[in-house]
């Protein structure tokens, strides 16, 4: 198609603007990365990985990293398991009270008890300072259940007929026929669940008081957002800190939290996008 001059000008302006957008999107990360890897000297800044040595050598941060990893893996595995079981039952039209159960599930998307009743429940269950307080309340999400149920419903009945004739149980059909066919949607759910748990900080702020049980995001919040100097000093003790500013320690802590997601991101991007589009999910 031939282009008019106006269109050519538009193209250039458009590309330039979007290039600017990309730079603005990227700049904060570049800045924090540079801040984490340099420190000020008399004549400018010099490269150093001291901040990373401090952060990665800090037992509290390492414990928190481990707790976050554990929580993420545990929650993702259990979410997938429980959601697949329920999604399968919900996909079957013969399930007793199916309509009512679906309503109960969907209603949780638009109404909830709020933080005080949730906090009191966790306390009454004795889950304060337990990793289960971070895993169990988020395990059943209406969103995941509906996505998986909808996908299972699209699997043609003809695929399961033979197995049924042979007397296979529902559980066997779920694990041998449904799950292998559902890998893309399960990968999407798994990824979103994992990222959600990796990023959670609010629940741990409310439910975890013991520093040995704390998660990375909540610790990061104390160091970077609440700017707790006590925390920062604890990270900085024991090593030569003469030339390391609190800024670079903070920046390095941020980077340690960002990196796992940023490194995973290019490989699993399409599942992220798929998850966004599934956001338009409906009954």
């Amino acid at each position: 198609m031939k282009r008019t001059r106006g269109e050519k000008i538009f193209n250039v302006v458009n590309l330039a603007f979007l290039g600017g957008v990309a730079l603005v999107a990227l700049y904060p990360f570049v800045y924090v990365m540079l801040a984490s890897m340099t420190c000020p000297t008399k004549d400018g800044r010099e490269w150093t990985f001291k901040a990373y040595e401090l952060v990665l050598g800090n037992p509290e941060i390492m414990t928190a990293l481990g707790n976050t990893a554990l929580r993420t893996v545990l929650a993702t595995a259990l979410t997938l398991l429980v959601s697949c079981l329920a999604g399968y039952a919900l996909a079957r039209k013969t399930l007793p009270h199916r309509g009512m159960v679906l309503f109960l599930i969907l209603f949780t998307m638009i109404f909830n008890g709020g933080i005080v009743p949730n906090y009191l429940l966790i306390r009454n269950l004795g889950l304060i300072d337990s990793i289960w307080s971070l895993v169990l309340p988020l395990l059943v999400s209406a969103f995941n259940l509906i996505i998986i149920k909808n996908f299972f419903q699209q699997i043609p009945e003809s695929l399961t007929e033979a197995a049924r004739v042979e007397g296979a149980s529902e559980t066997a059909i779920l694990f041998r026929i449904f799950l292998p066919l559902s890998m893309p949607v399960l990968a999407t759910v798994a990824l979103w669940t994992a990222v959600m748990h990796w990023n959670q900080w609010f629940d741990a702020m409310l439910y975890i008081y013991n520093d040995d049980k704390q998660v990375l995001q909540t610790l990061l919040q104390r160091i970077v957002i609440q700017n707790s100097t006590a925390m920062q000093d604890r990270v900085r003790t024991g090593l030569d800190i003469s030339r390391l500013t609190p800024e670079s320690v903070k920046a390095a802590t941020v980077m340690v939290t960002v990196l796992p997601i940023a490194m995973l991101y290019p490989f699993v991007q399409r599942y992220f996008v798929k998850g966004i589009l599934l956001g338009g999910v409906k009954e």
């Binding site: 079981l85 399930l95 949780t108 109404f111 909830n112 429940l121 559980t171």
Partner: peptide
């Protein structure tokens, strides 16, 4: 069997979504 598959989700749903509503 279907009801058993649904059970874990229902227990968690009631405990962590509906009990707080009562709260």
């Amino acid at each position: 069997e279907l009801l058993l598959l649904l059970l874990p989700s229902m227990v968690l749903l009631v405990l962590f979504n509906y009990v707080p509503m009562v709260g």
